[in-house]
Structures are given as C-alpha cells and as structure tokens.
C-alpha cells in the first residue's frame, strides 16, 4: 500500500485514522538539535501538554543559555530568553507579575547546577509556583562538550580529557535530591526520554506539574536525564544505552518528592 511520503495531517488516509501528529503549539521551525538529542522530545511533550490543557494563552516560558537557547523558536507561546544561569530568577520575576499564568523555566545542567546554582536553590526555597525543567545530559553541549557539574566520575569530556577525577574536579552533583530537601519544593521527579516508556512517564510528570501549579503550593521540579550523542561521541542509539548503564545508577529515575494528597 504505497502512501505518498510527504507529510499530511489529513484526518484519514485510505480509511486509516490519524492517531498521532505534531502538536499545534510547536512552530513550523525544524529543530536545530543534533540527531537523536533528547531536548526536542522534551520540547514536544511540553507543548503537547500545553495544547491538551488548552493553556497556550496562559503560559510563559523562560529559555536558558545552552543547547536549548533557541527553545522560543519552537514553542509557540510567549517566552523570554534568560542570561546563563538566571532562568529561574527571570521566571520568578514573570510569575510575581503574572501570578495567574503558568510559568516554566527550561535549563540544562551547566545553566541550572553550575552558574545558576544560587538562583536554582533560592527559587525552590521560596517555593516559587513555577515548573522548573532540568535537562541533565552531564555535559555542556552548545559550547562543544565540556564537563558539567553532573558529569560522571571517569567520564571523558573536552575539559576532562583523562576522565573526571574527584580529586581535581569533585563529584557529580545530585542537585535534584538537594532541592527535594527544601520545603519549597512541592513535586520533584527525575525522568528520562531514552525509550517509549520513559517518554510516556515524562509526559505524565509534566501534566501533574501544570495541575499542581494551579494550587500555588510550591515549586515543581522535573529533571530529565537525557543524552548528548555529539558530546559523548556516540550514535543516538548507543547514547541511550550508555545513559541507561551509566547515568541511571548515579541519577536513579522516579518521583523523589510527591505531595501528600
């Protein structure tokens, strides 16, 4: 059964019903991410939830400096571009002016857990009613694969060419567990997008977070353990395997703090 390969989103083709298409809240700009990168999967899930909840007009996002610096090219919502490390402070400013809107910040590991550590901790400690999304791929992707705070011991990067050693470069930072201790953290979870199952679970986590945000009970924080095929110098398929074998032991998946309903 030869189907024309150009994309269409016609409701039916030869009697087959449309069951999955790109969410309308994503723009038509193709993603610039490297092949296989988890960033754009998280972008899509975020926009799917915003579409399904019908809150495109109620949501303001804050993009970081890092690979996802161009997030606002893809997300068809009002967005702001923050200075490196400051996305959660910018999001705080937005939320304090627009308390009834949904606000999220989206950051990588260097942005959130290195230069932005103080902003990260204090935003959560104030229990700002925002969703903080944290993409942990254990490397600075945009600048060419340097070591990040979450880089694993012995992991080779462009600035840990002999593998990260704790004597000189300290330990992989489990910022999410740190933040879960803070009373301001209402819902804290660590997810991934390395296979179908994890993608489904992450979407649920995002849905929960937006639902929680309406309750004004504190900060929702989702870490997404993700891959970096280019930085890790692997194919996308290999990177997800490596991630499972090496990242998950250090960064175990699952809800770390869930509200007592």
């Amino acid at each position: 059964m030869e189907i024309a390969l150009e994309t269409t989103t016609a409701p039916t083709i030869n009697g087959f019903e449309l069951v999955y298409k790109k969410p309308s809240t994503l723009t038509d700009t193709p993603f610039h991410y490297c092949p296989g990168c988890g960033h754009s999967v998280v972008h899509r899930l975020l926009m799917e939830v915003i579409e399904e909840m019908g809150i495109q007009e109620q949501t303001v996002g804050v993009a970081p400096v890092g690979c996802s610096v161009f997030a606002y090219n893809y997300m068809d919502i009002d967005m702001q571009e923050a200075a490196h490390g400051r996305a959660s402070a910018v999001a705080t400013g937005v939320k304090r002016i627009l308390p009834d809107k949904f606000v999220f910040s989206y950051q990588g590991d260097g942005d959130l857990a290195a230069i932005g550590t103080a902003e990260t901790i204090h935003t959560v400690n104030r229990g700002e009613n925002i969703l903080m999304i944290f993409i942990n791929n254990a490397i600075y992707g945009m600048t060419g694969g340097q070591m990040a705070p979450t880089t694993l011991l012995k992991q080779v990067t462009s600035t840990s060419p002999y593998g990260r050693n704790k004597e000189a470069m300290g330990y992989p930072l489990k910022i999410t567990e740190l933040l879960a201790q803070l009373p301001g953290a209402y819902y804290v979870s660590r997810q991934a997008v390395y296979n179908v199952n994890s993608v489904r679970k992450l979407k649920k986590s995002i849905e929960k977070s937006f639902a929680y945000q309406k309750l004004n009970k504190g900060t929702c924080f989702i870490e997404v353990v993700s891959n970096c095929p280019s930085g890790w110098k692997m194919t996308p398929v290999e990177s997800n395997k490596w991630l499972e074998e090496n990242m998950f032991p250090q960064y175990p998946l699952g809800d770390i703090k869930t509200p007592k309903e």
Partner: peptide, 19 residues
C-alpha cells in the same frame, strides 16, 4: 502503535491506524 512518533526527536512522524 505510535512508538516511533513518541521517541522521534524531530516530530517527523505522523501515524495512522485502522479504526
């Protein structure tokens, strides 16, 4: 089954299924 579309990083896949 939509698996492919769920993991596709570039939202390149549209899925149809027999009702």
């Amino acid at each position: 089954c939509v698996n492919c579309a769920l993991v596709c990083p570039d939202v390149a896949i549209t899925v149809y299924r027999q009702p």
